[in-house]
Simulated assay, not measured.
Amino acid sequence: MPKIEIEVCQVGSTSTWKEKYDFHEGDPQAWAQAMLDRFNSTLRPGENPRELVSVEVLPEESQEHIWRKENVYTIVRGSQVYDKMRCERCGVTGKRHGLVSGVKRDSEYRAKKYEKCTGHV
């Protein structure tokens, strides 16, 4: 899911801050302005309205697992030779058989939801 980062400030102020949001579809600038308009329409007495300074569409993060070898030495069990692997971002585990083959996820992570890295388990 793409993300946007908006920079906002209170009306009349030069002090700004940034906020990140998941962005679904359409024009990011229009979406951010509509969100701020909704926020400003719900202000209580004494609260200051906010204005939009800028909108930046953030690059999408890779959804591929980043596999790292867990064991020091390659494991040999009978006729099987493999390395234990763990995704450094989400913690999904698997085994790599051979040097150039892909990683086969362990049974508890075989579900389709683990095909791509989400950044957390």
Rank of each mutant, 00 (worst) to 15 (best):
S79A: 13
E56L: 13
P2T: 07
S13P: 04
K20D: 03
G94S: 04
Q29D: 12
L36E: 09
R50N: 11
R89P: 02
S41G: 15
Q63P: 12
Q33V: 11
Y82R: 05
E56R: 13
N48R: 14
G98E: 04
K3T: 04
Q33H: 12
R89K: 08
Y73H: 07
N40A: 12
R105Y: 00
R89G: 00
P2V: 07
G119V: 05
G91H: 01
S101D: 06
R68K: 09
K84H: 05
N71K: 11
E7T: 10
K20E: 08
P45V: 12
M1I: 04
L58K: 05
D22I: 10
P45W: 08
E47A: 14
W31G: 10
E25K: 14
T74V: 12
C117S: 09
D106N: 09
S54D: 10
R96S: 07
K95M: 01
P45A: 15
E7R: 06
D27R: 06
C87L: 11
A34F: 09
G102Y: 00
M35Q: 08
R77D: 15
D22S: 10
A30F: 09
I6K: 03
T14R: 03
T42H: 12
M85H: 02
E51D: 11
E108L: 06
S13C: 11
K95T: 01
V53M: 04
A30Y: 06
R50K: 12
K3E: 03
P28A: 13
K113H: 09
L99G: 14
Q33K: 15
